[in-house]
Design a protein around this nucleic acid. Structure first.
Length: 269
DNA sequence: ATCGGGACCTGCTTGC
DNA sequence: TGCAAGCAGGTCCCGA
């Protein structure tokens, strides 16, 4: 499932199909997502025109005149736009039926969510998020200040959405590897200069992943339903026991905060 | 205030 | 071959 590049790839795939379109009706087959799908979803969105599809962190926001819809894809969710109706399969939970086709949410694990809000950016899940990684606000000074005195591992720090949004497990591993920073190092014990490198590498790895259409792991499917063929070259993630491409050392795997953590014990300090 | 761990789910891979 | 355990891209919430 989606990290930020996959969510952005989804947004870009969906948006040209749905922007300006009127939702004729909404079909909810399964309301038990991470939070229950609001009972008023169908009524609130039927007849509404989608004015914009934007993204904040890993949340997609669909704006209509009266209300906004928030969609998070969780671990296993994806959104597709189908030009023709076909039979819904087991985990196809929601359809938004429009004149030119159907937008469909599929999510086997049901960790995703679909919510409504007057103003999505003021919704409690979104209002407290940290800056976007590509924003001017997320710079060396900001990251340095946020790390000050913190004993939490730097990897967990950059995966904390209150610090910066959009850095999931894969890209946290990759950015730290590229920056030569050990993932278990205390956030407060990384020099400002190296945090500057980390800012650069977080942006670089996310940017190249977006350019390449999202990382394809097991089941990422782009908005057009095709698998993302453009697997970004991962240098640390899922490479336990293999040689480090930077120094020839061996990539190790450890569990940190219940997440698989890959690093080179030789060149990541 | 910060943290670690559990919780929410299904499906695929691995190992006995 | 069959079955159970282990693992997966997220993140909220609770208790220490």
């Amino acid at each position: 499932m989606p990290e930020l590049p996959e969510v952005e790839t989804t947004r870009r795939g969906i948006e040209p199909h749905v922007r300006g379109q009127v939702i004729r009706r909404v079909i909810v087959r399964e309301r038990r997502l991470r939070w229950p799908v609001p009972p008023e979803l169908e009524q609130q969105l039927s007849g509404a025109r989608i004015l914009a599809v934007t993204r904040r962190g890993k949340y997609l926001i669909f704006t209509t005149k009266k209300i906004e819809m928030i969609v998070h894809l969780g671990m296993s969710g994806h959104l597709r736009f189908l030009c023709e109706a076909d039979g819904a399969e087991k985990h196809d939970h929601i359809d938004w039926v429009m004149k030119e086709g159907i937008m469909r949410l599929t999510d086997p694990r049901r960790f995703g969510c679909v919510l409504l809000a007057r103003q999505a950016l003021k919704h409690p899940l979104i209002a407290e998020l940290g800056p976007e990684p590509f924003s001017a606000e997320f710079d060396t000074d900001y990251l340095h200040a946020s790390c000050r005195g913190r004993r939490v591992a730097i990897k967990q720090h950059i995966m904390n959405a209150r610090i910066v949004v959009g850095v999931g497990n894969i890209y946290a591993n990759e950015a730290l590897h590229r920056a030569g920073i050990h993932p278990l190092r205390a956030a407060g014990r990384v020099s400002k200069q190296r945090l500057g490198v980390l800012v650069t590498q977080i942006r670089a790895v996310l940017d190249s992943a977006i350019t390449e259409g999202g990382t394809t792991l097991r089941d990422f499917v782009r908005a057009d339903g095709n698998p993302g063929y453009f697997r970004v070259s991962l240098q640390a993630y899922d490479r336990e026991g293999l040689a480090c491409v930077r120094c020839g050392g061996t990539i190790r795997r450890k569990v940190l905060g219940q997440r698989a953590t890959y690093y080179c014990s030789n060149c990541q300090k």
